[in-house]
Structures are given as C-alpha cells and as structure tokens.
Simulated assay, not measured.
Amino acid sequence: MSRDDEYTAYMTARLPWLQRVAYLLCQDWNRADDLVQTAMTRLYVNWRRARSVENLDGYARTVLVRVFLAEQRTAWWKRVAVVRQTPEPAAETLDHDSNLDLRAALAALPPRQRAAVVLRFYCDLSVEQTADVLNCSTGTVKSQTSRALAGLRRALDPTVELT
C-alpha cells in the first residue's frame, strides 16, 4: 500500500471522530471543518513520522488540539473572513435543551480549559496524556480541568455555590 493510500484510508476512517473533537473544542461546525483540514494537512506533511508512532489516533488528536490552541492565540481578524454575501443559514437541527445548555457552557470556557475538558472527558485521556497533548505540566491540566468543571457547574446550575 502506498503512502497516499495509507493516509487516505486512515483519514477516511477517522474523519468523523476528528470533526467531533474539533466541534467540541470550538463549538462551530464550519470552524471545526477548518481545524480538521489544517490538522489533516499537517498530518499529511508529516505522514512518514506519524504512521510510525504507536498511537496514531493520539498523534492526530494532538495535532488537532495544537492547531485549535494556536488559532486561539491569533488575532480575531486573522480568523474572520469578510464576504460580500451572507451564507444561507444552516438547517435547523433538533436538539435537547440540556445539550444546548452544555454546549453553551462549554463554549463559554477559555480555550485551554475547554481543551482540557474535551481531552479528559470526551477523549478519555489521563492527566499525563492530556498534559502531553497540551504541552504543559500535569498540575496545569488538573487546575485547568478543575476550573473548567467549576465553570460548567456554575453555568449549568447557577444555584450551586462553589467555594
């Protein structure tokens, strides 16, 4: 199997998962697609190294999270494209109120806290694995996760008093 065939087979199988992780990070399907596209490009460029790692999904996820965090550090005008015509609104999707509340609460978190929560609880990574992806210490992961969970609790149940 050629290099391109291996890459195509992997991306075909893992694309929906990468899109879901990206959506959880940025809360916008269009932006999630952009993040995945950038991550896919970086993965393709480094495919020789990537295909030799023990955990390819972990490698791809790390690339995706780092693309997201790098984008968060750039100025808003570098992320916004001005168009002459507004795009047609997306079709309405049915969703439960609790899912909408959780998405809104997740979107309100700062980017690194959001990334920590997504990696720890959606991707089911350990503290050490999350620290490796975020390129920080385990203590930072713990504090970011703790602050994120406190923020989610406040957003989802304002009557809860946190100390």
Rank of each mutant, 00 (worst) to 15 (best):
R49A: 13
A50G: 05
A50S: 12
A50K: 01
A50M: 11
S52Q: 09
V53I: 09
E54M: 07
L56T: 11
L56R: 13
G58Q: 11
G58F: 14
A60D: 07
R61A: 12
V63C: 09
L64D: 08
V65W: 00
R66I: 03
V67K: 00
V67F: 00
F68L: 01
F68W: 04
L69C: 08
A70Y: 03
Q72V: 03
R73W: 01
R73F: 00
R73I: 00
R73M: 04
T74Y: 05
T74R: 13
T74N: 06
W76Q: 07
W76D: 13
W77I: 09
V80Y: 05
V82L: 10
V82S: 02
V83L: 14
V83C: 12
R84N: 10
T86I: 10
P87A: 13
P87H: 10
E88A: 12
E88P: 09
P89Q: 09
A90E: 14
A90K: 12
A91K: 12
E92N: 05
E92F: 08
T93G: 04
T93V: 14
T93L: 09
L94V: 13
N99E: 12
L100Q: 15
D101P: 01
L102K: 08
A105K: 00
A105M: 06
L106N: 07
A107Q: 11
A107N: 07
A107R: 11
A107M: 04
A107L: 10
A108L: 07
L109F: 01
P110R: 08
P111N: 01
R112K: 14
A115R: 00
A116H: 00
V117P: 01
V117W: 00
V118W: 00
F121D: 09
F121N: 06
F121V: 00
Y122S: 14
Y122G: 06
C123P: 02
C123H: 05
L125A: 03
L125C: 06
L125W: 02
L125D: 03
V127E: 11
E128H: 10
E128K: 13
Q129C: 02
Q129K: 10
D132M: 09
V133E: 03
V133M: 07
N135Y: 05
N135F: 07
N135Q: 15
G139E: 14
G139I: 03
V141Y: 04
V141K: 03
K142Q: 14
S143C: 11
S143A: 13
Q144I: 01
Q144L: 15
T145Y: 05
S146D: 15
R147A: 08
R147D: 04
R147M: 07
A148L: 08
L149M: 15
L149F: 06
G151I: 02
L152I: 05
R153N: 06
R154H: 13
A155K: 03
A155D: 08
L156T: 04
L156N: 03
L156S: 04
